[in-house]
Nucleic acid binder design. Sequence first.
DNA 1: GACGGTACCGTACTAAGTACGAAAGGCGGA
DNA 2: TCCGCCTTTCGTACTTAGTACGGTACCGTC
Lengths: 228, 228
Amino acid sequence: MSRRITDGPPLSRERVLGAAVELADAGGIASLTIRSLADKLGVKPMSVYHHVANKDEILDGIVDRVFAEIEVPAAGGDWRAELRRRCGSARLALRRHSWAIGLLESRTTPGPATLRAHDAALGCLRGAGFTVPQTAHALTVLDSYVYGFAVQEASLPFDEQQSAGDVAEDIMEGFDPGAYPHLVEMAVEHITRPGYSFGDQFGFGLELILDGLAALLGSGADRARRDQ
Amino acid sequence: MSRRITDGPPLSRERVLGAAVELADAGGIASLTIRSLADKLGVKPMSVYHHVANKDEILDGIVDRVFAEIEVPAAGGDWRAELRRRCGSARLALRRHSWAIGLLESRTTPGPATLRAHDAALGCLRGAGFTVPQTAHALTVLDSYVYGFAVQEASLPFDEQQSAGDVAEDIMEGFDPGAYPHLVEMAVEHITRPGYSFGDQFGFGLELILDGLAALLGSGADRARRDQ
DNA sequence: GACGGTACCGTACTAAGTACGAAAGGCGGA
DNA sequence: TCCGCCTTTCGTACTTAGTACGGTACCGTC
């Protein structure tokens, strides 16, 4: 069996993970199989296993790659601006790789990029004057919001601002008309109106949460400064 | 082939979905296979297919069952109390069935319980005086928070308040000590302290968001009343 | 009492993860 | 220079999973 008949650079863990991300992006996480991965790399299936232990390690690896795309906030700057940037880039990364949020649930061994992303966010909050418990609360709220928004964005039945009305009709058909009056109101008066985009809602919630955190900081500024 | 040799009631879509939920709860979504499901039901694999079209329909069905466990808020009561109850029960349902959040990403055809849960929440907000666009924003923030909190709770490396310290050491081993100073601080000074429980953080973020929404309602009460 | 519909099952095909061992080429030491 | 070893790649095959296809038993109806 000749070694490296194929073109391009030799196989490596990095090339394997890169191709895995591209496959998942293109066809969903279900389309990422060892065989499809090997095909994309111009290699036979079992060759992949010399660079990763098993498929779980590939899944851990591509999740960490998504976290590597999140912009790292700076400690010491304007904490609201820094966290806004971090959360915005996280949301975009999770939208680019919508399979990632589904993997988060099953992966429990964070990689270096994941740890770095969390460490930097903690540092930003601590640097802003939040106490350790406040920082824990703050990051939990922010990350919950970002992850949950990504979940909802990923489970939207339509791709982009494509006809939301058609989709609504598809869902409603077969159900008792009038059974969900408030959903109908929302669809008719808001979602199907031109210019509506689910993604536009992200900023609203983010600012609401940042406002709440800022209030926390103001009311406990003295104790926060001592803890810092 | 004799019909219904086995004990118990005959097979049905409801029995199939119920057994599927139990299997997923017990061993994770990966342990839910047609064969394991058939075993649990005391039946051969292909018999299941007389009650559901395919496995995807099973997955859609068990997600809807989880939504059916969410308490429905009443419109007209104290909206904060109603939504607190709804979000709390949603979080508990998602913790009981931690596989559900991973499925949300891939399921795009909501079932009746899902639609009912959303409709009731919308009705509660509209009844409280929020305008249609405000209601959309409010529910998006709340659901994002609940879903995202569930994601984080599901991806905790430890089961319950079991030794978080051991887990932290496992993760850190093999990494440059001092590479993640704020994570270490958080672990040492907060997470590994007795009495810490991630789940306790849920209330903090929920009240923060409800406060933000209440402020929204207060500042635009006149227009809200007109829209109602 | 034959007849068709419903519920269940046996068999088998396809796809995916991966264990096992073989082969091909490079490399260090004698 | 030669030789044996190490790394990388591959061929084969085993196991598990989803499910297509057709068969068979029980039930109610005419």
